Simulated scan of single mutants.
Amino acid sequence: MSYEKETSVTSAELEALIQGWGASPEKSIDQFYPLRFWYIFFLALFYSIWLLFANDSAVQRMTTDATDSVRMGRFLYFRGWFILCIIVLGSYAYFKNWYPAIVMSALFLMACVNLVFDLFNVYAAALSQPTPQLTLMILARIIAITFLYLCVKNSSRLPNLGDRANLLLIFKRTQ
């Protein structure tokens, strides 16, 4: 039995397949793409900074058990570094046009898996006595996941490289 050493689908072909899944690029660019990207970027940056530099307050919001707090603190500190790496990877893919559909798809899947994991492990004790802050935190994550889904779906309608950081793109007239 011999195995082929060549890949069946190249990265460029996979990118084209994912981009072909969403709306057709002939329609127009997605003018809300930069707004969604910056929402995800700043939310992830806030969480990363919070988990890296205010780890104790994050742990206190999630658990009151002393034995769990040490384990949770280490886990959330690692999660802060992980989120920071994800921010760098996602930003590079978006601004340099480095397979943005593949990267956003991977980020969407990771965000979904992390949310489900966090609901059963990180937020488990906090969900027994929910607070408005916890509700807003989970709601912000669900909105970010929805925005990531829309980023994947509309990856064929990305703005031009010069307009990707433009928050006021929604007011720009299209030709």
Rank of each mutant, 00 (worst) to 15 (best):
M1F: 11
S2V: 11
E6Y: 06
A12Q: 15
A16Q: 11
G20D: 14
S24G: 06
P25G: 03
P25C: 01
K27Y: 07
F32H: 06
Y33N: 07
R36V: 10
F37A: 06
A44K: 11
A44C: 09
L45F: 00
F46I: 06
F46T: 09
I49Q: 01
I49W: 02
A54H: 06
N55H: 07
N55Q: 06
D56W: 03
D56A: 14
D65L: 09
A66V: 03
D68H: 11
R71K: 10
M72A: 03
M72Q: 03
G73L: 03
R74L: 13
R79W: 05
G80A: 01
G80D: 01
V88T: 11
A93G: 05
Y94W: 12
K96S: 10
K96D: 04
N97Y: 07
W98Q: 08
W98P: 00
Y99F: 15
I102G: 05
S105T: 13
A106E: 02
L107E: 10
C112L: 12
C112I: 10
C112T: 11
V116E: 06
F120T: 00
F120C: 00
V122R: 05
A125Q: 15
L127A: 12
L127T: 04
Q129V: 10
Q133P: 01
L134P: 02
M137F: 10
I138F: 05
A140R: 11
I145L: 02
S155A: 14
D163N: 15
R164N: 08
L169G: 10
L169H: 07
